[in-house]
Design a protein around this nucleic acid. Structure first.
Length: 589
RNA sequence: GCGCCCGUAGCUCAAUUGGAUAGAGCACCAGACUACGAAUCUGGGGGUUGGAAGUUCGAGUCUUUCCGGGCGCGCCA
């Protein structure tokens, strides 16, 4: 069951190919494609079937193509089929087949394009997973949007999706957060210590000096008075205050992250806590399992070539044989103090996710690129190869304003927060713009362009097309005898600009399936831009020739067909925007 | 030094996963408003897809090797 006409036509092609080349190996049949043509002169679709089959059949591609064309021309959906080029068969659909896309859209509504290619497989998408040590900044934003849209896309393609956020609430970073929060706490109580005096007593030095922790300090003081401080508001014994302050600060940071995410329209099915994972003993269980499988050993790693760390000394440590699973070097699981490395805990986390999933996807920032191969290796090892990890890497986003990069420095506390960006640009523009690039390509986010009300801004351009559709439909609603009717006769839709729009919409299910398989949500943005361009072009045809306008009061049958067309364009745009998490607008303001 | 990602029109980016003559926007030039919304549309010029070699019916896409940019590189997460 699918809306994808390409799937249906491919069945026809395979049947014809089976007749022409009876003993075609199945693995070659899998390579047969039916694709949209680039050049409209080549018809609606083309297939490479003859090229694929030529070698095993020991026949010239052109000869097979001719046979295929003759057979395919008999199919009811196909108006004509012609061999072309080196061995393609170009197909032109029967008008009724083409126009059937319109009632298909109208009947399915925004669900149009939904597919079953995911077969209900459980797929877990982990994204954002920002450390709860500060507000979300623009660096997190791309991963948040890409992960969220990818999850929506996979759901539309028929996967059972879980959206997951991993809370790194254990380890040194959150300890540093606790110290920084404690400083703001003493400060709000009016301690005589200076910041530098305090910093001197912090193991590893005082981090997170941004003033976003000031309110946390104030709230700590309100909740606990001076009870967490030492004598005369000096630094008290960490053993007594640190666990309290740490949890308090983590909760505050998580609350702020959730607010920012909600503002961005990003939601999760599940938050998983690293601390809870540790307390459950899962990491030890994972290590024990790997040990039992003979994948761990005590060994000494070679130093990295070329760039030797200053304090390098050979050290024996517990290593995981990730090289057996495609990694470059084996990876350590224990620090010298006996505690687990982050990697060791993350193995347990991925094992936990794998236990309730068929496929895992991590959406990571580019700075985690070096982490990918070991995590894939570990996932393969801990699940015995039954669950594989895929990684979508999001490259750096450089925020531009007035043609200049906006400088960011987290250390100095002058970074652009996500909520700042949302205030400048707005949720829909942020989300759409973040999806106008392949995620593994670096990107400049131009604030000026994202709010521009012109064609160069794809958000605006697509929204404008939708608003124009709605404008027509509002006018149509006032016309007697006119309605959005899936059963309307569409025979009058014959203009090339009209058919171009229909062809584009016909490709939506195929785009969903291909984008989902490739894990590339940005394709949705490009599809919508192209559909919007087709529609704007058609619209303008109506300016030049009034006979091409949608609403003709003296010709109800003609108008009914165009109303159906316009309504289906609006529906497909909404269907795509829904995947992107962008709200359609009824009119431009 | 090693690994991963990227390199496409002057600029920002696509290219249906190996398909036919590599496409859009911006910028530049020339046009279309008695409006279902001109915030749009039409036409034009602009390319050795970083360089070289290879794989095959066919390469921007795959392999090798250089060049350039980004990220990472044993107890940070």
């Amino acid at each position: 069951m699918t809306d994808n006409i390409y799937t249906l036509i491919r069945e026809r092609v395979l049947a014809a190919l089976q007749a022409a080349v009876p003993d075609l190996p199945p693995e070659l049949a899998a390579r047969v494609e039916v694709t949209p043509t680039r050049d409209p002169a080549h018809g609606d679709m083309a297939t490479n079937a003859a090229l694929i089959a030529a070698k095993p059949a020991r026949l010239p591609p052109a000869k097979i193509a001719a046979a295929l064309a003759a057979a395919l021309a008999q199919a009811p959906e196909i108006a004509s089929a012609e061999p072309a080029g080196p061995g393609f068969v170009n197909l032109r659909l029967a008008p009724a087949t083409l126009l059937a896309a319109i009632p298909a859209v109208l009947r399915a509504g925004e669900a149009f394009g939904a597919s079953t290619t995911g077969h209900g497989k459980r797929i877990n998408v982990e994204y954002v997973s920002a450390n709860p040590t500060g507000p979300m900044h623009v660096g997190h934003c791309r991963g948040a949007v890409v992960g969220d849209a990818l999850a929506n896309l996979l759901a539309k393609a028929g996967y059972a999706v879980t959206k997951e956020f991993y809370v790194n609430d254990a380890g040194n970073q959150v300890a540093a957060l606790a110290w920084a929060s404690y400083w703001r706490y003493l400060e709000s109580l009016g301690t005589a210590l200076t910041e530098e005096e305090f910093a001197a007593s912090v193991p590893g030095g005082l981090q997170y000096r941004g003033d976003y922790l000031v309110p946390v300090g104030v709230k700590l003081a309100e909740a606990y008075g001076a009870s967490l401080a030492g004598p005369d508001l000096t630094v008290g014994d960490p053993a007594s205050w640190l666990p309290v302050v740490r949890q308090f600060a983590i909760d505050a940071m998580l609350a702020s992250i959730r607010i920012d995410l909600a503002e961005l329209g990003v939601t999760f099915d599940r938050f998983s806590s690293e601390r809870e994972l540790l307390e459950s003993g899962a990491p030890d269980a994972s290590i024990a399992k790997l040990q039992a499988d003979g994948l761990l050993y005590q060994g000494v790693l070679e130093p990295p070539k070329g760039k030797l760390p200053d304090d390098w000394e050979p050290r024996e440590q517990l290593l995981f044989r990730s090289t057996q699973f495609g990694d470059d070097v084996d990876r350590p699981l224990r620090k010298s103090d006996g505690t687990n490395t982050y990697f060791a805990n993350d193995i347990a986390y991925h094992a936990a996710k794998a236990a309730r999933s068929d496929v895992l996807i991590d959406v990571l920032g580019a700075d985690h690129g070096g982490y990918v191969s070991r995590m894939k290796a570990a996932t393969k090892a801990i699940t015995g190869g039954t669950v594989l990890l895929e990684v979508v890497l999001c490259q750096i986003v450089r925020v531009m304003k007035g043609g200049e990069p906006v400088r960011m420095s987290k250390r100095a506390g002058t970074f652009i927060t996500l909520s700042d960006l949302l205030e400048f640009v707005g949720r829909d523009a942020v989300r759409f713009t973040m999806l106008t690039r392949k995620s593994d390509a670096q990107m400049d986010f131009d604030i000026d362009a994202a709010v521009a009300q012109t064609r160069e801004n794809p958000v605006f351009y697509v929204q404008y097309a939708h608003a124009r559709c709605r404008s027509v439909l509002r006018a149509a609603a006032d016309m007697p005898g006119i309605s959005i009717d899936p059963a309307a006769s569409l025979d009058s839709l014959q203009d090339e600009a009209e058919l171009a729009v229909v062809r584009r919409m016909m490709g939506w299910p195929r785009t969903v399936e291909a984008a989902a398989e490739a894990r590339e949500p940005h394709r949705i943005a490009f599809f919508l831009y192209d559909l919007a361009a087709d529609f704007h072009m058609l619209w303008n045809r109506g300016r030049e020739a009034t006979t091409l306008r949608f609403l003709q009061p003296d010709n109800l049958a003609y108008t009914q067909a165009r109303v159906a067309l316009v309504a289906s364009v609006a529906t497909v745009i909404r269907s795509g925007l829904q995947v992107m998490g962008v709200a359609p607008v009824e009119e431009m303001r």
